[in-house]
Design a protein around this nucleic acid. Structure first.
Length: 312
DNA sequence: TAAGATAAGAGGGACAT
DNA sequence: ATGTCAGTCTTATCTTA
């Protein structure tokens, strides 16, 4: 297992604060150990790296400091052949050499956009578009780009389509950075079948030997609460219920969103602020049936009904 | 109209062969 | 690799309050 994957989540989030340098043996990259930025002396010359549509967009996204180029297809590492026909000491080259150099320039230019790189580029266009649409922070798509690059260099032909793979990488990145998004969220935003997404995701986890923890349902409670617009009291109580439930080990193997939905439903009843199953179903993406079932496991698991008070 | 019950089916994980 | 099994979740339909 190579060291770049053992980076702690904290490193990813803190971004570039004197992180150690690490090398990725597979892709041959030298990166900042804290956030995965690829180090290259040309970095600061790069312009904005997002596609922009309006002047305001452009102004906002124009870079002010060093920024990763992981989501640019060649990471700024492609060949550069100078345009002057002089050698290192400044002397003019012979005509044969000039001819040869011109040939090289042509081929160099052509090779830069050869198929592999082109599909890489396509992938990152998809990635950036969808990540932006979902409002995901930059370090998540950086990580996704990293996973994608990695699996492509390790297994050039995975039998998966580019889009399935890049979005699966995005989901993996969400898991890795503990950014709570479900497969459904991504499938929807990316307009791709959940099944395909899931298959590719498993592929990535297996082949890159990732060890991704299951989401904590509490993350989803927070999200659901704000989407439904419940009181702070209700949100907190739902969290309390889940903390209690976690101790009884009834959470394992269940969809975290399902448990979050059930806990919120439970809490709503408890606090006299009943939220309909339908409403929770709509925002959570879980069916009302699942909410009911999880609600039952919750009641059984912690051994109290919503109308009783929660004892430590 | 919301909530609950029930049944059938899909899909994946664990485990054995 | 393939098969089986239990458990999860979904869809659909019907009933209840």
């Amino acid at each position: 297992m190579d060291n770049s994957l053992t980076l702690s989540e904290k490193c990813i989030l803190s971004r570039c604060k004197d992180g150690p340098l690490i090398t990725d043996n597979i892709a041959g990259e030298l990166m900042c150990g804290s956030c995965g930025v690829v180090l290259s002396e040309k970095m600061e010359e790069y312009g904005p790296e997002y596609r922009t549509f309006t002047k305001e967009d452009y102004m906002q996204r124009t870079r002010t400091g060093m920024r990763s180029t992981l989501t640019i297809y060649d990471m700024g590492l492609s060949t550069k052949i100078g345009s002057k026909n002089k050698d290192a000491s400044g002397k003019r080259l012979s005509s044969e050499m000039i001819f040869a150099l011109n040939r090289l320039r042509v081929w160099d230019a052509r090779s830069k956009l050869r198929s592999r790189e082109r599909s890489m580029q396509n992938a990152f266009v998809l990635l950036n578009g969808t990540a932006a649409k979902m409002g995901l922070p930059g370090f998540v798509s950086e990580k996704a780009a990293y996973f994608y690059r990695k699996i492509k260099s390790k297994y050039p032909r995975t039998g998966r389509t580019t889009e399935a793979l890049i979005f699966a990488a995005l989901y993996a990145a969400c898991r890795f950075t503990n950014t709570p998004r479900t497969l459904n969220d991504i499938a929807q935003a990316a307009n791709i079948k959940k099944k395909r997404l899931q298959k590719s995701y498993r592929d990535i986890v297996k082949r890159l030997d990732l060890n991704l923890e299951q989401y904590d349902p509490i993350e989803f409670v927070n999200r659901l609460s704000s989407e439904v617009g419940v009181s702070e009291k209700t949100r907190r109580y739902a969290v309390k219920i889940l903390i209690k439930a976690r101790k009884t080990r009834i959470l394992t193997g269940k969809h975290p969103m399902g448990m979050a939905a059930a806990a919120l439903y439970f809490s709503g009843i408890h606090n006299n602020e009943k939220i309909s199953q339908k409403k929770i179903s709509d925002v959570s993406g879980m069916t009302t049936v699942t909410i009911r079932n999880r609600y039952q496991t919750l009641v059984k698991g912690i051994g109290i009904s919503p109308l009783e008070s929660l004892t430590k």
